[in-house]
């Protein structure tokens, strides 16, 4: 059970986050914060012609929140904004649904669906995604 939650890929992303840092010339940015557990994500994004050409995150928190942020940056980099939103919806629905998710469609994000069985941890897995939503909804910098 615990092995399903803490798969190696999650531990790996948690320990060596991808796309870590701050983009100096971001067009969009947002802060995500969970006051109950203190998880933090700061996201900077460069959007050009409707495409997320680059994004980086900084943060601190549990392995789930940081791994999820790391995987998100890989999942949406190079995608257009609408595609990125669709990926979040697919991921979000997979976490909220009682049914087995479509693992193939989720690709690497499927490794995070173990949190389904730990309701108190779902907000850890979605923090970075909500932060991305906030960033994309914000005005161009």
């Amino acid at each position: 059970m615990l092995q399903e939650l803490y798969q190696e890929v999650i531990i790996d992303h948690g320990k060596s986050p991808r796309n870590s840092g701050v983009l100096e010339k971001a067009t969009h940015e947002a802060e995500g914060y969970n006051p109950y557990c203190g998880d933090e994500v700061h996201l900077t994004v460069v959007v050009k012609d409707g495409v997320i050409v680059d994004l980086k995150f900084e943060g601190q928190g549990c392995a789930i929140s940081q791994a999820s942020a790391s995987m998100m940056t890989e999942a949406v980099k190079g995608k257009n904004v609408e595609e990125a939103k669709a990926i979040f919806k697919r991921f979000h629905d997979a976490l909220m649904s009682r049914e087995d998710p479509d693992y193939d469609a989720l690709d690497e994000l499927a490794s995070l669906t173990g949190v389904k069985d730990y309701p108190s941890r779902i907000k850890c897995a979605t923090l970075a995604w909500h932060c991305l939503e906030d960033a994309l909804e914000g005005q161009d910098a």
């Binding site: 059970m1 615990l2 939650l5 803490y6 109950y36 557990c37 203190g38 998880d39 928190g61 549990c62 392995a63 789930i64 730990y118 108190s120 941890r121 850890c124």
Partner: peptide, 22 residues
Amino acid sequence: AIHPHDFGTICDQFGVAIRAGH
């Protein structure tokens, strides 16, 4: 360096109720 919330979830699987956070 294990985050206390991750550790708290692991404890819970052992039936152990602890607090994690600030």
